[in-house]
Design a protein around this nucleic acid. Sequence first.
DNA 1: GTCTATATTCTGATAGAC
DNA 2: GTCTATCAGAATATAGAC
Lengths: 194, 194
Amino acid sequence: MARTAGSHSDITGPRVRQAALRLFARQGYAAVSMRQIASEVGVQAGALYNYTPDKQSLLFDLMQAHMRDVLGAVPDPKGRSAMDQLEDFVRFHIAFHFGRPDEVFIAYMELRNLTPENFEVIEKQRKLYESHLEQILDNGVSAGAFAVQDPKIATFAVIAMLTGINTWFREGGRLSLEAVQDQYWHMVRTAVGA
Amino acid sequence: MARTAGSHSDITGPRVRQAALRLFARQGYAAVSMRQIASEVGVQAGALYNYTPDKQSLLFDLMQAHMRDVLGAVPDPKGRSAMDQLEDFVRFHIAFHFGRPDEVFIAYMELRNLTPENFEVIEKQRKLYESHLEQILDNGVSAGAFAVQDPKIATFAVIAMLTGINTWFREGGRLSLEAVQDQYWHMVRTAVGA
DNA sequence: GTCTATATTCTGATAGAC
DNA sequence: GTCTATCAGAATATAGAC
C-alpha cells in the first residue's frame, strides 16, 4: 500500500500528544495555543485537527490516559499485611509519580480547565485511586495495625504529602529515589501510628 | 472638594483586586480576561487601567500581598519549646490558609504565570516562609526533641500535607477547624518523632 | 495527511470625549 | 474616573487545494 506524500499519521499522533503534554505542564493549558503545539511538532495548526477534534479533547485524553495508567499500576494488596500494603502503596506512589512529572502536574493543576462533563470522569477516577489508600487504612485500623482517628483525613494527608514530592525532587539531586522513598515511608508509618 | 461625576477611586480599586482574586482562583490567570474582571466589578475594560498598569501587575500584587500577610502573621517562636513552636506553626498554617482559600490557591498555582523578575520576588518570600518551619525542625533535632532524618525533606512534607487541606476542607462540613487542627497536629507530631 | 487561507471571535492595551 | 471606540494581534476552528 503506497503512502500519501507527507503522510505520517502513525508518528504525528503521538508527537502531538507529547508536545501538548510538555507545553501544558510548563505553561498551563489556557496559556498554550494550538499554533504553539503545532510548531513544536513541526506541522501547521490545521493539521492538528486530524488527531484531535479540539483543544479540550487533547487535555482530557492526556488526563484520562494518566489516570488509567495509575489505576492499572497500583499494587495489589491481596495476601499482604496491613503494614506491607501501606508500604507498597507509598513506595509505588512515589516511584510512579516521579517517572511522570508532567502528567502528574497536569492531572491536578488543570482540573478546572476541563468541561464539567470531562471533569466528572476524571474526578471519579481520582477518587477511585484515593479509595485504594483509604481502604488500606480502614482495614489496618480494624486489624489494630494503625492508630488513625479519621482514615479519610489521613488519606488526604498522605496523598498530599507524597504528591508534594514532585514540586521539589529532581533526579540527579543530592537524594536518590530510594532515599526519598525511605524517608517518606518512615514519616507515613509513624504518622499513622504503625 | 467636589468629586467628579462617576468617580469611585477609593472603592473601585479594592473591588478590582477582589474580582481578579476570585476569578484567577476559579479559572486561572491565563483563562481570565480583563473584560471579565471589568464585568465583575461593573465597569468597562478600559477603566481597569486606572488601577493597574497591566494584567501581570494585578497577579503579582495579589501574590505579593498574600506573602506579606503570611510572613507578617507567622507566630514568633521566641521563648517557646521546640514542641510548642512546631504546634504553633502547624495550627497557625492551617487556620491562616483556611481563611484565605483563593489567595492560597493562586499563590501556588499561578507561579508559572509570573514574569521571571516577579517570580524571583515571590519565590524568595515563599522560601522565607518555609525556612521558619525548617528552623524549628533544625533546632528541635539539635535539642533532641525531634527524630528527623532530613529537616529539609520533613519541611516539604509537612507543608505539602498542611496546604493540601485547602483542597478538601470546606467550612460547614462534618469537621470543625479545631478538629482538623488537632488531627493534623497529631500526625505531624508523630511523623517528626516528637 | 498536510498545506494555505480564512472566518470569526476574542485578547490586552490605548486615545480621547465627558 | 469612566466611558466609547479602536488598534493590532492572536485565538480556535474550518474549507478546500494538493
